[in-house]
């Protein structure tokens, strides 16, 4: 009994000394700033900065390899914190939000064929360009929903991706995954958008979509500085979009929408109550 206690005690002592020595000998120097930065980053490891997780980004900042403005989910607050830690000037860029530039759900658009395959937009788009007649609209199979690290994208019952502007952090994952490039980054302060992505001529668009832009120029005639027409498709000029909302009522296919007051008929979308403050909310929410 006694010998067992002593024997184990000796083994324990030797191991403790060895471990103590090893922890000193092989200690890795971590820059205290790296730990501090890691602390202020949102911690969701979304990869929007292009580094492997938040800690990877923190290390890259300390090594001077990365700019401090690469964390869209963190937003302006985080940039200021990092600037403080690193002793740099905080030059916060404009916060961006993703917007699905399409309203053509399954009720409003026509289809080329019945699609029964894999529930993935990229897979469907390889079969004759996708089941929708529209070559540019939302395919409604939800690849973006799966890709969003913030659960900010939902699919309506009629098959249209909708981005919740309170949860979106502008990380850009959905932009890369969408085979139609129908999701675009837009300035978070702008709430008026032309929700169409098809460059087809008006007559062609009318055949496959009730609510697609027909390139009629009425929005541009109403508010000339706020709209640009490019190949039969109107776009808001976000640099001069102050009065863009004036054209909403005039648009014949009703494809201009203001997120402040309305959103495409969707049960789970509330009109925006406040100006989106990009982004801080996301990090805080996720941290609880």
């Amino acid at each position: 009994m006694l010998s067992a206690v002593l024997g184990l005690g000796q083994i324990g002592l030797v191991a403790a000394i060895a471990l103590g020595w090893a922890s000193k000998k092989f200690a890795v120097d971590i820059d205290a700033r790296e730990l501090d930065i890691n602390e202020v980053l949102p911690g969701v490891n979304c990869g929007a900065c292009g580094y492997p997780g938040c800690s990877g980004y923190a290390a890259a900042i300390v090594e001077g390899k990365a700019a401090i403005t690469l964390c869209p989910p963190g937003g302006g607050d985080v940039v200021e914190h990092i600037a403080e830690i690193m002793g740099l000037d905080a030059n916060v860029g404009e916060p961006l939000l993703a917007v699905v530039l399409c309203q053509g759900d399954n009720r409003k658009t026509t289809k080329k064929y019945r699609y029964l395959g894999l529930h993935d937009c990229n897979a469907a788009s390889k079969i004759a360009g996708g089941p929708k007649d529209c070559p540019a609209g939302c395919l409604g199979l939800g690849s973006c929903v799966a890709s969003c690290p913030f659960e900010a994208i939902e699919m309506t019952a009629d098959g249209l991706a909708i981005i919740n502007r309170e949860l979106c952090t502008g990380c850009g994952h959905c932009i890369d995954i969408c085979p139609r490039q129908v999701i675009r980054m837009t300035p978070a302060r702008e709430t008026v958008h032309v929700l169409c992505n098809s460059h087809d001529k008006g007559g062609v668009v009318r055949k496959y979509c009730e609510t697609g832009c027909i390139g009629c120029n009425i929005c541009k005639k109403t508010v000339p500085e706020a709209y640009k027409i490019d190949k039969f498709l109107a776009r808001v000029d976000y640099d001069h979009a102050e009065h863009a909302a004036l054209a909403i009522e005039k648009c014949p296919p009703q494809c201009i929408r203001d997120f402040k007051t309305a959103y495409p008929e969707s049960s789970h979308f509330r009109p925006e109550q406040k100006q989106p403050s990009a982004t801080l909310c996301a990090g805080k929410d996720l941290h609880g």
């Binding site: 894999l118 990229n122 897979a123 390889k126």
Partner: peptide, 13 residues
């Protein structure tokens, strides 16, 4: 299950 299509998706990816 649409396995071939999924494998084609994998190859594309």
């Amino acid at each position: 299950r649409p396995l071939v299509q999924t494998l084609r998706h994998a190859k594309g990816g």
